[in-house]
């Protein structure tokens, strides 16, 4: 199991457009990825490909989230997903 932390860069938080862009990106990777707030225990982690889960997570601008995955290429995939979260997707 690999873990990466990311700080939400979008001004509105992980909602609406930023959540749609991120969920779509996770949906395209070949492994399962979970997401949780840094303050939440691992068993509360949710499917990061689900926009509905992402929105109910309620991550605001500046919040730190933890992405988790295992399997081939997991580290590289997590790194690329962190970059998406750390970009202000409202500005895209």
């Amino acid at each position: 199991m690999f873990e990466r932390k990311a700080t939400i860069a979008s001004r509105v938080g992980l909602h609406a457009r930023p959540a749609a862009i991120f969920a779509e990106a996770v949906g395209e990777v070949p492994i399962d990825v979970t997401i949780a707030l840094e303050s939440d225990p691992e068993e509360d982690a949710m499917d990061a490909a689900s926009i509905l889960s992402l929105m109910s997570l309620g991550a605001s601008n500046g919040d730190v989230v933890v992405l988790r995955a295992e399997g081939e290429g997991a580290e590289g995939i997590l790194d690329s997903l962190v970059r998406i979260l750390e970009t202000d997707l409202d500005a895209v």
Binding site: A16, R17, A19, A20, A23, E24, G27, M46, D47, A49, S50, I51, L52, S53
Partner: peptide
């Protein structure tokens, strides 16, 4: 956002 909801895994 709605497009992504249509294929939402949950």
């Amino acid at each position: 956002a709605t497009a992504q909801m249509a294929v939402d895994p949950m």
